[in-house]
Amino acid sequence: MSEQRSTRRRFVAGATAATAIALAGCAGGDDDGGVPEEYRTATSIGGNERDPDSLSSKNAAAYQESPSGDRQCSNCRYFIEDKNGDGVGACAIVAGEIQPDAYCARYVRHEG
């Protein structure tokens, strides 16, 4: 009987830890994806200010480094254009450096 309790406790502890790890990846939090400082709270081409504490992960946004037709980050309202000459930008709602010709499920065409 005590062996069964021990196994059950290990299972519950493992399940709890796995859930916490999985949820941490979805939470956004203060993980800004390691972007350079000039992007940390920059404003996108659509006027949205980047909040490092409320970003989605690239995985959660289904980010992919190839455009979907004419849908690409460089014409999305959330795109923050290159600020340091490296050819890469950022996003107001997705963490990390963003390729201008990439695409994600959060795409909204910039009409400006």
Rank of each mutant, 00 (worst) to 15 (best):
C26P: 07
D30G: 14
A22M: 13
A62V: 04
A24N: 14
D30Q: 12
G89Y: 10
N75R: 00
N75A: 01
T19H: 02
G28A: 05
D86Q: 07
N75H: 00
A20L: 15
A17L: 04
G69I: 03
I80A: 05
G87E: 05
E65N: 12
T43I: 11
K58I: 04
N84C: 03
P52C: 09
Y78V: 07
G47E: 06
E38H: 05
A18K: 03
D70W: 05
N59E: 14
E65F: 02
S54L: 10
F79A: 04
C91T: 01
R40A: 08
E38V: 13
A61G: 03
P52Y: 07
D51C: 02
S57V: 06
E37G: 10
R40W: 00
A17M: 03
L55M: 03
N84Y: 03
S66V: 08
G28C: 08
S66P: 00
G46N: 05
V88E: 07
T41L: 01
E49T: 15
Q64H: 02
E37K: 12
N48A: 11
Q64R: 13
D82M: 00
Q72M: 12
S56F: 15
I80T: 00
A22G: 15
E81T: 08
A61L: 00
L23V: 15
T43R: 02
G33D: 04
N84W: 00
A20M: 14
T16W: 07
D70T: 09
V35D: 06
E38Y: 00
Y39T: 03
A90Q: 11
A20W: 12
L55R: 03
I21K: 10
Y63W: 13
N84T: 02
G87T: 12
